[in-house]
């Protein structure tokens, strides 16, 4: 078997995509210490698979997919210290705290779609491809999530 040296340097990937992976993990798992572990696991897996990453956009997609996977299985939470209670994410303003709390109440899949749409600025079609589903389903989830958030947080159509 032949291996080729990857174009992507692991440290470059960590520097560039740490926050993206971490924020997505937080949106999925909601707790700091679990997100910490998901974050580390994602990049450890990347390191082991880096030869298969073909391009920057492939890298980004790969990281998003694996982050969702790792958060989903919650594998990492098993590796945490048993003594500690999960640590909450801390925010500077009450408003941000409230928004985060309401988002966390959403279904996992809604959270993911909301995050990819609002934070990563992904198009509906891109999210659909990423989640291996169709666009109308994503639209449905997005709209459900927006409805719930609007109800919980107030605000008009333009806001959510």
């Amino acid at each position: 078997m032949q291996t080729t040296k990857s174009n992507i340097d692991i440290n470059y990937a960590i520097d560039k995509y740490s926050n993206m992976v971490y924020r997505l993990a937080v949106s999925r798992v909601g707790k700091k210490d679990i997100a910490d572990d998901v974050y580390q696991e994602v990049f450890i897996r990347l390191n082991r698979n880096i030869n298969k990453i073909e391009s920057e956009s492939h890298l980004k997609n790969w990281l998003i997919k694996v982050t969702i996977n790792c958060s989903k299985t919650e594998l990492m939470s098993k590796w945490n210290n048993i003594e500690e209670l999960p640590e909450d994410i801390k925010f500077e303003t009450e408003e941000h705290h409230e928004i985060f709390e309401e988002v966390q109440k959403l279904d996992e899949k809604y959270r993911t779609v909301i995050h990819l749409f609002y934070y990563e600025d992904m198009k509906i079609s891109e999210i659909a491809e990423m989640l291996d589903t169709n666009e109308s389903t994503i639209k449905t989830w997005l709209s459900r999530a927006r409805d719930i958030l609007r109800k919980a947080l107030g605000g008009d159509e333009n806001e959510w």
């Binding site: 440290n11 971490y22 974050y39 390191n47 994410i89 925010f91 941000h96």
Partner: peptide, 25 residues
């Protein structure tokens, strides 16, 4: 949605965690 973005902008990986990861790798 600006509010969502602002909220998540506050969430960042600590340098300590990042260094720890790089060392592990």
């Amino acid at each position: 949605n600006g509010k969502y973005k602002d909220t998540f902008d506050e969430i960042k990986v600590s340098e300590e965690l990042k260094m720890n990861l790089k060392e592990k790798i």
